[in-house]
Amino acid sequence: MHHAHANLLRRGRFSEPGRLYLITTITHQREPLFQHLINARHVVRQMRQSDYEFASRSLAWVVMPDHVHWLIELQQVTLGTLMRRFKSRVGIALRKAGVPQKRVWQPGYQDRALRREEDVRRVARYIVANPLRAGLVSSIREYPHWDAVWL
């Protein structure tokens, strides 16, 4: 199915190696696929794989039940390539694990380039506090699916 406004997400998108980006991507129909530990760990493995391949350097992330927030420094690929690989690999891993979901992700993703003068640690704290704001836990220590290079 073609989404008439999907191209608007890409308008003005520019991939700059070395730039910091906050990326958000959502599961298809907000299905809470990642509420299950194994499924969430597949997502984490693919973020780490992107780092190993020098596509990105993960600074902070959180895997929520139905979406992912990922703060990266873009490395040797475009944002589009990074996200295509990431989303495809997560989908393949979930299917191999027996998840019957036909579609894992909504089309596209949101990204925001951070300016160098922004407080990157504040952005990272905002990301990892998502489970608290969503009421999933009373302390971030209770939530297993997050990380930040500063913590």
Rank of each mutant, 00 (worst) to 15 (best):
T25L: 15
I127M: 05
S50F: 05
P65Q: 03
H28S: 08
E73N: 07
V99G: 03
E53L: 15
V68Q: 00
F86N: 02
L136S: 09
R133D: 10
R103P: 03
E16S: 13
K87Y: 04
L82T: 10
H145D: 11
R45T: 14
A4M: 15
Q75D: 11
V90H: 02
M1L: 14
L71Y: 00
R122G: 06
R45L: 15
H3G: 08
S58A: 02
V149G: 05
A148E: 09
V137N: 02
R45H: 13
I72S: 04
F14Y: 11
H3Q: 12
R112Q: 01
Q76A: 11
Q46A: 07
A93W: 07
L33I: 05
S15M: 02
Q49F: 11
R115F: 00
V128S: 00
L151A: 13
Q35S: 15
L8V: 08
M1H: 12
R57K: 14
G91P: 06
S15Q: 04
V90C: 06
D51K: 12
W61C: 04
N130V: 03
V99S: 06
F86L: 13
G80D: 13
Y126H: 04
R95F: 08
Q106G: 12
Y52P: 04
T81G: 06
I23C: 14
H67D: 09
N130T: 01
R85C: 07
